[in-house]
Structures are given as C-alpha cells and as structure tokens.
C-alpha cells in the first residue's frame, strides 16, 4: 500500500511538471511575448524596441531556463539592461540587488505579478479560489446526495417505471451542457420578460452575501450536468449488486426489501460512484468556468477567462498550477480511496 501511494505520488509530480511546462511553453511563445511587450511597454513599439524590452527582462532566454526560474529551482536572473537599469526576477521596488533572495519561484511562494489585476498572483488566486470554493461546496452538497438517491432508487428495481423515469431524466441532464441549462434556467426563473422572477440571473451579489435568491441558479446549473452522470453510474453499480448471490440469499432468508437495499446492497453499491464523484472534479472545473462567466460570478473560472483573454501570462500560469493540482489530487484520492473502500483489495 505504501509503495503504491508513493508510486502514484511520483507519477503525479511528473505529470504536474509536464503539464506546467506545456502551459509555460504555450504562454511564452513569441507572439504572446510580443503582445505582452506592447501592452506593458508601448503599443507603438518597433520590432527592435520590443526585442530590447524583452531581453532587458530576460524573456529572450531558452524556455527551460525560464521555466526553472519560474519553478524556483534555478536562481532568478539579474540583467543589466541596454538602458543601464538593473532588473532581476527577484527584484521588486524597494529591494536592492544585494538583499534580494536568489530563488523566487512557485516553490518559494512567489507566483509572480498579474498584469491585468495589478496584484500578486498568489493573493488573487486565494481570493478567487475561496469564492469558487463556496460554489463548489454548494454544488457538491446538492449534487452528490441527490445523484446517489436517484441512482439507488432507479437501480433497486431494474426495469420498473420508476427506473425508466429516473434513467430518462438522467440521460436528459447529461445531454444538457451548462451553457444550455444556464440559459434555460435564467429564461424560466429570472427573465424579466417572460420568467417567474424567483431568482436572480446574476450571481455577482453572492460573492459577499450568499442567499437563496442569488445563488440557486448557478449551483443548480453546475450540479445538473454532473448529477445525471453520477446517477447513471450509481444505478449501474446498484443493479449489478442487486443481482449478486448474497442479495438472493438475503431474499430467500426472508429479509424485507427495504432492509436488503439499505443494509446489504447500499454499501457495496457506493464503491464505484465514489471514484466517479472524485473524477467529476475536472469536469466541475469546466462547469465552473462556464457558469461563472454566464452568471458573472467573479471566482476562479472567471479569473481564468480574464487571464487567458488578456494575455496575463503569470496569472494564467498560476491558475493552471491550481487547476492541474486539483485534478491530480482528486485522481490520487480516487485511486487510494478505491483501494481503501474495496474490501477485496484492502484485505488481500
């Protein structure tokens, strides 16, 4: 078990390094840097001026060195520019070249500076992430229990009317991406022209003050898409368990149907959905980006869109570190959790 976890963590770190390098490479391509120089410096710079601007700030060196500096395993550059100024990766206003630390990368907790938000990336990531955590937490709270209940109810009597109704409903929800269900929800529940006007079509006010009126629609929109998938997986797992030998034995002993479902079937039927729920996190991340854009909720996904749309390189890198970390950790938890939950593997 220990060796298994160690190997998984090793693969995870390797994956994280590869992924962040890919993001680093793609954000540091020449056209992106040129755009950065023109937005940060002067929009009417000539090609030579752009080149000097970039070389003054160390952007013209090979990608792997820049990546090492950004990561914090190589010492940050200190360059005396063509204009005589000394610039360094670790030099900030008010810090002299002697006092500055040698390494300043992600590992040292220096995430860089956002050119769009004019603020430290780590600070923005923390603020935005806490907003999105609220959304994610509510989504999980709504999605997981209801999906499990729907799946168990549908799976306990395969082929019954209840099963068919619930299965159809889950197929419909898996066919409804967030940008469709969001539009439908806003039209039905929030539109001032035809709607019921029960909820708000914008979740901006939910950032300070989360209420039933302004937060229901975003939560429902994210939850709905994942719900159908988890419910279908739970149903499949439940129907499989219900045909197992020990369930038949319990029936023959005269255990009531309710007790069979709750005491015998449920625990074993919930092992498979656990993995599925954990692996839903990457998809939730997608949903969160769409929903935060649609409902104008300024969280992590909204930041991703802003950073990507405005060529904010360091912000984008910070965002991708966090999202890659979330995805890989949930994968790790799902792997370990599966081993832990499944008595056949745990005991042998």
């Amino acid at each position: 078990m220990g060796l298994f976890v160690l190997r998984r963590v090793g693969v995870m770190i390797l994956t994280a390094l590869c992924l962040t390098f890919v993001v680093f490479y793609l954000t540091n391509l020449d056209p992106n840097l040129e755009k950065l120089a023109k937005t940060q410096g002067n929009a009417r710079m000539s090609d030579e001026q752009v080149q000097t601007w970039l070389s003054n700030r160390g952007y013209d060196r090979p990608d792997y060195i820049k990546y090492g500096e950004w990561l914090g395993v190589l010492p940050g550059y200190v360059i005396e520019g063509a204009d005589g100024d000394i610039r360094g990766r670790c030099l900030r206003a008010g810090v002299t070249a002697e006092d500055a630390p040698r390494f300043c990368g992600i590992l040292q907790g220096d995430w860089g500076f956002s050119t769009v938000f004019k603020e430290d990336v780590s600070k923005i990531v923390m603020i935005r992430l806490s907003q999105t955590a609220k959304l994610m937490g509510m989504v999980m709270l709504v999605m997981v229990p209801s999906a499990l209940i729907i799946g168990v109810l549908a799976g306990m009597r395969e082929g019954s009317r209840l099963d068919r109704t619930l299965s159809t409903a889950s197929i419909v929800t898996t066919a409804t991406p967030e940008y469709v269900s969001g539009v439908l929800f806003i039209t039905i529940f929030a539109s001032s022209a035809v709607g019921l006007k029960w909820f708000n079509g914008s979740a901006t006010s939910a950032m300070e003050n989360m209420t039933f009126v302004n937060f229901t629609l975003p939560v429902m929109t994210v939850a709905l898409y994942g719900m159908g998938y988890i419910a279908r997986m739970t149903r499949a797992s439940m129907t499989e368990v219900m045909t197992a030998q020990y369930i038949r034995t319990a029936r023959l002993k005269g255990v009531s149907f309710r007790n069979i479902v709750i005491k015998h079937a449920l625990r074993n039927a919930l092992i498979a959905p656990f993995t599925v729920i954990m692996l839903q996190f990457p998809w939730l991340l997608n949903g969160v980006v769409i929903v935060e854009t649609l409902f104008n909720f300024k969280g992590f996904g909204w930041t991703l869109v802003q950073a990507a749309g405005n060529n904010d390189i360091e912000m984008l890198l910070g965002v991708s570190v966090v999202s890659v970390f979330v995805v890989l950790t949930t994968q790790l938890i799902s792997d370990i959790g599966y081993v832990f939950l499944n008595p056949r593997i745990r005991i042998s």
Binding site: V22, V23, L29, P282, V289, V327, Q331
Partner: peptide, 23 residues
Amino acid sequence: NLILAFPVILLFYLLVTPEIVMT
C-alpha cells in the same frame, strides 16, 4: 493521462488563440 488531466477550457484557451495560430 497527461492530456486528460488538462482542464479542457484551459487547453482551448491556450490552443485556439490567434497568437498560437500564428506560430
């Protein structure tokens, strides 16, 4: 697994921009 661990929207934003098309 590497590609699957990439959040899809981030990948789209990195790949489908005029700058990347230029390269």
